[in-house]
Amino acid sequence: MPLAFIVWAFAIVIVYVFLARLWWFPPPINQHGIIYDQHFLSTLLVTGVIFFLAQLALGYVIVRYRDRGQRAVYSHGNNKLEVLWTSAAAVLFIGAVLASTRVYAGVHLGRPPENALRVEVLGKQFAWSFRYPGPDGKFGRTDIKLINDAGGNPFGLDDTDPAARDDIVTSALRVPVGTPVRLTLKSRDVIHNFFVRELRLKQDLVPGMEIPLVFQADKTGVYEIPCSELCGLGHHQMRSTLEVLTAEEFRRWEQAQVEQLRQLQQP
């Protein structure tokens, strides 16, 4: 008997916390984020109702059919009911998949726009590096033998290649607002994961692979990037930020970087 009330109480608390959004997603900053939230909400609504009804029913049978000396019904089941709830569940589940495919396709199956800003993301134990192609629009040659983290060359840029000389390497990801960005995710050692909560995006960085990820941030601000795939003892410290700048700020920042590189390379 008390069990019924406990089950109900938990069901109510859980539903309440989700409805009241006591802990919730940060507000989305891109179109995908908005669609994501809608889809999450509709899944939550449907499953929430089923969750609540199932727990309610469980509590109900516990109270209603406790042993009060009545006779239990002798029944081996009901095939009509079986068919009914099997097909209902099937329809619901397939519906959810179909609806979700639309959201998923938007991220991974679309073609990146031509004008997208290209950035290479490199994960290593336990830091992030980002590389922009620089004014020439070309990523230069790299060589793992030239990798030198202390010397600021995590990618192993080969300075003998002119295309490499103007590549901008940073430890935070800066992008202009409202512009499509095409990331290429790479890892140097173990698997890491690029995750920006506000973008509702998550993608592993797998050594030996170059994985594309396209997004467009529509709101300026600074957003944290936590590594989300176990990569070793510093996994919880592998932090960077996504800084969404206005177009003007971004241009100025990029210019400053180029300038700085040029000065460094003056003999």
């Binding site: 069990l3 089950v7 938990f10 859980i14 997603f25 994501y36 889809h39 999450f40 899944t43 939550l44 499953t47 089923i50 969750f51 199932a54 727990q55 469980l58 516990i62 589940f93 959810a96 998949v97 979700s100 495919t101 639309r102 959201v103 998923y104 991220v107 994961n193 995750f195 909560r197 509702r200 995006l201 998550k202 989300s228 795939e229």
Partner: peptide, 28 residues
């Protein structure tokens, strides 16, 4: 009876994870 309650609670969150779109955020 506790098993049934917990199985429903734990199973329903599986329905979120089973959709790649939602797992894009919830994974790990």
């Amino acid at each position: 009876l506790g098993f049934v309650s917990l199985f429903v609670t734990g199973g329903i969150s599986g329905i979120f994870l089973g959709q790649p779109a939602l797992d894009l955020y919830l994974h790990d």
